[in-house]
Amino acid sequence: MFENANLTELKERGLVGAIACTSTGSVIDATNDELDVFGSILSYISQVADMIGEPFGMDSIEEVHLISSNATAICIPQEGDCLGVLCSSRANIDEILNELLD
């Protein structure tokens, strides 16, 4: 899934890793083996985010950004599966996501 992306260059620009999981938490693809814990909660995060917005007329969630002091994690639901991207706090997330998802 991540074969088309230049992971080496993206890691220099702040990408820590990326993982794709099914709705049940099974790993489809990952850039390294240390993201399993992150992958296991992606589905739940997207479900809760949907439930937060749905009563107020929002459509399905597009992205969830989890911002901590030294990293930013992004959860992107994709047709039942979930894509998780972990970046350093100073990374240009939009650029990394554009290149990773193209």
């Binding site: 909660i41 739940y44 995060i45 985010a49 597009e62 901590s68 994690a73």
Partner: peptide, 23 residues
């Protein structure tokens, strides 16, 4: 629930941005 679940199962995060198509 979102905060507690992520704190317990991943790492403590104080800030979230939920991006919906409208808001």
């Amino acid at each position: 629930t979102l905060y507690e679940a992520v704190d317990e199962n991943y790492m403590p995060c104080d800030d979230y941005i939920l991006k919906f198509p409208q808001k």
